[in-house]
Amino acid sequence: MTIESILGAIVIGAVIGAIGRLLLPGRQAIGWILTIVVGIVAALVGTLLAQVLGVETTPGIDWIELVMQVVLAIVGVGLVAGLKRGHRV
């Protein structure tokens, strides 16, 4: 892995996490750093899932893979927000 690919993963993860958070209805009581971390994880897992399922890669944007990543980010943000809410006293 090069520094460019690591920085790219962080940027893409931040965008994926932000989209997932915006598409999730209601207010999420998590910070932006945690949103970015969830987005990075969702982007990596979404890419792996797309490869396992045999989603064909095309030149340009892989829309199916992108949708998988955003859906995973929505689920991840929801889970993290729910877990964080459950730990409040």
Rank of each mutant, 00 (worst) to 15 (best):
G82W: 13
P59A: 14
V75K: 05
G54E: 12
E56N: 10
A43V: 03
T58I: 13
V45R: 01
V37C: 11
T58P: 00
V41E: 09
V67P: 05
K84V: 14
L72W: 02
W63F: 14
G60S: 07
G78A: 08
V80E: 06
T58A: 06
V71D: 00
K84R: 15
L79D: 01
V67W: 04
V77Q: 03
V55C: 08
V41M: 12
G82E: 09
M68G: 07
A81Y: 06
A81V: 04
A81R: 08
V77L: 08
A50R: 00
E56I: 05
A81K: 02
E56H: 06
V67L: 14
M68W: 10
V71S: 01
A73P: 03
L72N: 03
M68F: 15
E65N: 15
I40K: 03
Q51M: 10
G60L: 10
G60T: 06
L48P: 00
I61N: 04
V75M: 13
G39F: 04
I61T: 12
L48S: 03
I74S: 03
A81S: 15
V45T: 10
V45S: 10
A43N: 11
T57C: 01
V52G: 01
A73G: 03
G76P: 09
L48V: 07
W63R: 04
K84H: 11
G76M: 10
M68Q: 06
L66P: 04
V67R: 01
E56W: 00
L66R: 13
V41F: 15
L79C: 07
L44H: 08
A81I: 05
G78R: 04
L72T: 02
P59K: 11
V71Q: 00
M68V: 14
G60V: 07
D62N: 14
A42M: 06
T58S: 05
Q51L: 10
A42F: 03
V67D: 01
A42K: 09
T58W: 02
L79A: 11
V80M: 09
V70S: 04
G39Y: 08
L83D: 04
L72R: 01
I64K: 10
T47F: 10
T57E: 14
V55D: 06
V71I: 14
I40R: 06
V71E: 00
I64F: 09
T47V: 05
Q51D: 12
T58Q: 09
I61F: 14
A50F: 00
I74A: 10
I61Q: 08
L49F: 13
A42Q: 08
Q69D: 10
